[in-house]
Design a protein around this nucleic acid. Structure first.
Lengths: 150, 150
DNA sequence: GATATATTTGGCATAATATGCCATAACGAG
DNA sequence: CTCGTTATGGCATATTATGCCAAATATATC
């Protein structure tokens, strides 16, 4: 990955639908080597895919919740059960395995506080081995960055 | 926003580079009304943009950190200064204004623990009015969802 | 420093795709 | 039922992607 690849990644993170012609111009290459670099980045898994960024409020899901979860014991089995359970729950946008006091950090998206209550009751509580659930509501987004630094 | 729009959004969240022809086929429309719907969703701000999803490890930034920040007082001015300060810091991928005990939740991306130390020293500590910084490191990602639920 | 090898690049022809326009069809209000 | 509005599909044109080849650049070896 040289400087040109980094430039390509920066441009595609800021506009994932850039045409190859436009992208090539911005990174000072002709279209064909530019396209070949993009395909290589895709094949190597550096580019995992492309996505449309949807406005949560306009979509009807204005509420973002961060949830810190601890398991009651830390066997491989308990972790596997938990991690498997969350995969099928659509409201969970992402889940990180954490160091320190909490085991998992979830970002969950819902339409309202009422729906969040339902979510906790119907989706979270049925999962076994969960010792504690710590909920933090987000009022709004102050910053949102598309491109990784550097 | 009818069912077709929702379908379009779902498809474009899962593959932001779908050709209009392919998208039209998937949502059972001919290309022209399909494209018109996409453009409308863009104009209305439902689709905020498109982005390439870059693998953090492959890119050289394997460490994700969640940081909970409290300000020492909650004047509009203190908030504005803080919120303005973080905009220019590239390592901060997103920042949410929170309810409850902490004021802000940051997601930060760095190459190593050493770099995180530098980040805190050089970027965070200079910001005024910050009362406390609570750092939580992520080992790895258990789940990552591109598409909003429903 | 010269030569051989491998890698990357740019150009071109072809195939696929997007775009804008228009007539037709579906929908809703009165 | 009828008018006015909105959405749809088809088509011609312009733009873009793709695959192939020769030229240029970089790398390694002696």
């Amino acid at each position: 990955m040289d400087a040109k690849d980094l430039q390509i990644l920066r441009e595609l993170q800021n506009d994932g639908r850039l045409s190859n012609a436009e992208l090539a111009e911005r990174v000072a290459l002709s279209p064909s080597p530019c396209l070949r670099r993009v395909r290589l980045l895709e094949e190597r898994g550096v580019i995992e895919g492309y996505t449309a960024i949807v406005n949560q409020k306009a979509y009807g899901l204005p509420v973002t919740v961060f949830i810190q979860i601890r398991l009651d014991h830390h066997s491989t089995e308990a972790a596997q059960i938990f991690e498997h359970a969350i995969q099928t729950i659509d409201e969970i946008m992402d889940c990180h395995l954490m160091t320190g006091e909490t085991d998992y950090m979830l970002r969950v998206v819902v339409s309202s506080l009422e729906e969040y209550e339902q979510f906790v009751r119907n989706r979270l509580h049925p999962i076994p081995n969960v010792a504690s659930i710590n909920t933090s509501f987000a009022y709004g987004v102050v910053k949102k960055n598309r491109a990784l630094p550097r």
